[in-house]
Design a protein around this nucleic acid. Structure first.
Length: 305
DNA sequence: AGCCAGGAGATTT
DNA sequence: AAATCTCATGGC
């Protein structure tokens, strides 16, 4: 259990030893076109949705063992349950409750992971807590470069999302599946993604609006395989997107987007290969990562950017 | 200019 | 089942 304490306008959350705020911050800053939060002076500012309320929070490192959440724009939660919800979401975002020591113990002896672990010690798989956002991000990222994916996301969010204003800046809230479920592909015509992707996103929004698809349902399945099957059944979601979402949103430790180009390139780079590794070679390397595939992938991705 | 990008679905073999 | 084709668009 995570220890936290609420002050008048702040909440302090204790972080584990194998956590490094700056390393995670670096990850969050990997693309300047990110639209869901702002980072300035080592402080993250973003909107968080809890119990049907929206709060603008600023998260920073208080000291080596604590991060602090400040509330801005008069959106401070008063009720204890709302404060608890904030703590819960922050913990989930930073994956604070996971014990990384077994991962490090394993990775330390793995020639591929060793460098990544040395370089990014304290890095967590940063979450995409919201299932609709995670699915959309996965779909948007299919077969396009990362910079372009960020552009698509920004267009989508700024056209269909809500925002809170603070000090003359807008802090965006990801479009709701309710809203998107009522749109047509023509409504999304301005967003320069393929028509197919527009269909996928609207269809996913409809499934969520119907209640046929939800984070809760996926979390209540027994294991990764079942959740993956459930997701892959949806048009537009293949093994890559399913595992990406299982990793970043549902937080299955063994989620593994094995076909990911980034992972392939990272392995090629770290091993100094002059060609891309085959799927079989990746499987062989990953056989040592059992039950830590998601973290292994995330750390290797970091070697590229 | 051409290749590729944090793929997926449909069609063919 | 596995290989191949088509989609589709910006970045480098």
């Amino acid at each position: 259990m995570i220890t936290w304490k609420a002050k008048k306008h702040h909440i302090f959350i204790e972080t584990p030893a194998s956590f490094d705020f700056k390393v995670n911050l670096d990850y969050l800053q990997r693309n300047a076109n990110e639209c869901m939060y702002e980072i300035e002076n080592n402080r993250i500012t973003r909107v968080m949705k809890i119990n049907h309320m929206r709060t603008l929070v600023r998260i920073s490192e208080a000291d080596r063992e604590n991060i602090v959440v400040e509330f801005l724009a008069d959106t401070e939660p008063i009720l204890l349950e709302d404060k608890k919800a904030i703590v819960h979401d922050v913990c989930e975002w930073f994956d604070l409750e996971r014990n990384l020591l077994p991962f490090y113990e394993m990775g330390w002896q793995d020639s591929l992971l060793k460098q990544a672990i040395e370089r990014f010690y304290g890095l967590r798989v940063m979450g995409l807590n919201d299932l609709f956002e995670a699915l959309c991000w996965g779909i948007l990222g299919q077969q396009v470069s990362l910079p372009f994916a960020y552009t698509l996301k920004r267009q989508f969010v700024e056209k269909f999302g809500d925002s809170l204003d603070y000090n003359g800046k807008k802090y965006w809230i990801f479009p709701s599946f309710d809203k998107i479920s009522r749109l047509t592909v023509e409504d999304l015509a301005d967003i320069k993604m393929t028509k197919r992707k527009r269909e996928y996103i609207i269809d996913v929004a409809k499934l969520m609006a119907n209640g046929d698809l939800s984070k809760e349902k996926l979390l209540h399945l027994d294991d990764l395989k079942q959740a993956e099957e459930e997701l892959v059944r949806i048009r537009g979601i293949g093994p890559w997107t399913a595992n990406y979402v299982l990793m970043r949103c549902l937080r299955y430790q063994n989620a593994f987007p094995i076909d990911d180009v980034g992972l392939i390139n990272a392995i090629k780079f770290v091993m100094g290969m002059d060609r891309k590794p085959t799927k079989e070679e990746i499987r062989a390397l990953a056989s040592q990562w059992e039950n830590w595939e998601s973290y292994a992938t995330f750390y290797l991705w970091r070697m590229l950017y």
